[in-house]
Design a protein around this nucleic acid. Structure first.
Lengths: 166, 166
DNA sequence: TATTGTTATACTCTATAACTATA
DNA sequence: TATAGTTATAGAGTATAACAATA
């Protein structure tokens, strides 16, 4: 029977998806109610925050988020309209668009971050010991790297390398 | 500094969300391409499958999935139109709607399940030992129970108990 | 009066395809 | 010719509010 997971795997898979789903639900509620941000918008702002001096292009951003270019353009448009980011043509490559977070953008992140952290801490970390946190981090880092390394089975997710084999 | 997670927590949180996000993305792709099902639709069918003889109402279903009633009605409508489920008035309570999976519904689940399991196994479990699976299952079960037990902070998620406070 | 579920509606998210401009 | 990004557009998902029917 190849098309079944063993009981332990089933239990783990369900617990994982359910826990993460509950966590995501709360996180989204918090970001929306306290900062008027969708999760994706928060992710974009957070990435720009982290970047510091480094100039990020639209492609760099799309790289992190699992997202289509047009979707990112749309979200960037919304954020720009709110004055949270600015876009300008890259001096290095006229085709590229450099995205930067504004002061207002940083302020917005600062506004929602405490609540965000509070939710994550109360929901997720409150039930985990320091040792659990390390163990979970190790496992998930490994899993993430494994998934990232895995080449897409069939359709290339038009990320950067266009699949000529198709 | 209460509004920050320690480095280990940050790493764990990011790894967890990123890994799960990658996994969900692949799972969704697979369900859509192999069975024309959204994840929510698959969840509904899976729940009905598991239920066996037990009769589930719309409310029972909404209970499992984090979902509004109208959203569930919408999805149930789509599934019924495809002949994958049937709905009829409950004999016990005339207000309630009993939902049941059809033969075609079971067939659809059987059709997508192997691929679903394959994705989960290849992406998630391939990088985890049997011991990891148990450990992860324990932690996530604990976290899930903790989150389920937690009363909503402010707005009651109109599930069943209507919040009279506010 | 409270509960179950549906309907109408509107809004957001996301992706595809066509397009422009630059390398 | 390939790449970066935008635009137009269309479809799916989700939620709110108003509603009907039953408990």
């Amino acid at each position: 029977m190849a098309d079944a997971l063993d009981p332990a795997q089933m239990r783990t898979y369900f617990a994982l998806t359910e826990a993460v789903s509950l966590l995501q639900y709360e996180v989204r509620q918090q970001l929306q109610s306290e900062g008027g941000l969708s999760y994706v918008q928060f992710e974009i702002l957070a990435k720009l925050s982290e970047a510091g001096e480094r100039q990020l292009t639209m492609t760099d951003l799309a790289d992190g988020v699992v997202y289509s270019r047009s979707g990112l353009t749309h979200q960037a448009g919304l954020l720009e309209r709110e004055g949270l980011i600015v876009r300008h043509v890259s001096p290095d490559d006229q085709r590229a668009t450099v995205v930067a977070i504004t002061k207002a953008g940083r302020a917005r992140v600062a506004k929602v971050l405490p609540g965000h952290v509070r939710v994550v801490r109360e929901l997720l970390f409150e039930s985990l010991s320091a040792r659990d946190v390390r163990t979970l981090g190790d496992m998930m880092s490994r899993a993430r790297d494994h998934m990232r390394a895995r080449p897409p089975r069939s359709a290339a997710p038009r990320k950067r390398s266009a699949g000529s084999a198709d």
